[in-house]
Simulated assay, not measured.
Amino acid sequence: VGQGIRVDAHLRTSAPNIYAAGDVCEFQLDGQYQRQETWRNAEAQGRHAALNLLGREVPFEALPGFWSDQYDWGLQTVGGMTAFSVTRALPDGGLLLFFLDTERRLQGACGWARGNGVAKDIKLCERLISAGIALDTANLINPDLSLKQLLRG
């Protein structure tokens, strides 16, 4: 154990035939062990652990993310946070933070807006992370340019 029950890429513990998932599970993401205490992660890891218990041998590769409602505002994240970020101001006083690697590929995003105002943008960020394309930071900070346009290239 570290800060939780450490597992390999298939969510196996060091004990034979024992898997761990959810809040207690400490797994590697970008070479670092971490825990994700969110229902989204617990659900995804539970499914993966079940598949692996049934002999599928599927590595856990889901992007981390969570959401939280804070009265009239919503916070949503996806992916990992890096040292380099740019910010897009949103019309309602909210914002989107984009976390990029050294090749300007999106690694993570965090949004703050009224209600569920950033849900669509965070979903698009998830697709941009998976696409692994280099992005122009001027386009990311431009609120008049939709993230869907960036995904299309």
Rank of each mutant, 00 (worst) to 15 (best):
F99R: 00
D8N: 13
G55D: 12
F60S: 13
L100S: 01
G80T: 14
A119H: 11
I5Q: 04
F99G: 06
Q45G: 15
D8C: 04
F99S: 12
F84D: 15
P143G: 10
Q32W: 01
D23F: 00
T77E: 04
T77H: 00
P143I: 09
K120D: 15
L150A: 02
L29H: 09
C125Y: 00
N142V: 06
C125F: 01
G2S: 13
L51C: 10
L11Y: 02
N17S: 14
N142W: 02
A9F: 02
L75E: 02
L145V: 14
P59F: 13
D101E: 03
A49K: 04
Q76R: 13
I133A: 15
R35N: 07
D92M: 13
L140T: 08
G115H: 05
E103H: 10
W112V: 07
Q36A: 13
V86Y: 04
A9T: 07
G111S: 03
G65F: 12
Q28D: 08
Q45Y: 02
R56I: 00
L151W: 09
W112S: 03
L29V: 09
I122A: 00
A9H: 05
A20I: 07
A9Y: 01
G132L: 11
G93F: 07
W112P: 06
E37V: 11
A44M: 12
L100N: 01
C125A: 07
L97Q: 12
W73Q: 11
A20K: 01
Q28P: 00
A131N: 00
C25I: 02
A49P: 06
Y33D: 02
R6A: 10
L63P: 06
E61C: 10
D8T: 07
L11R: 03
G4W: 11
Q76C: 04
C25S: 07
A49H: 08
D92H: 10
G4R: 04
E43P: 00
D101K: 05
A15D: 09
T13R: 06
V24P: 08
Q34L: 14
L97M: 10
P143L: 09
L51Y: 15
E57A: 10
P64W: 07
L53F: 12
E37D: 11
F66L: 11
A138S: 08
A15Y: 08
G115A: 06
S130N: 06
N41C: 13
Q70T: 02
K148H: 11
A131V: 05
T82D: 03
T38K: 08
D8V: 05
I133E: 03
V118P: 04
V118R: 04
G22K: 06
R88Q: 09
T137N: 02
Y33L: 15
K148E: 15
G31E: 11
A44T: 04
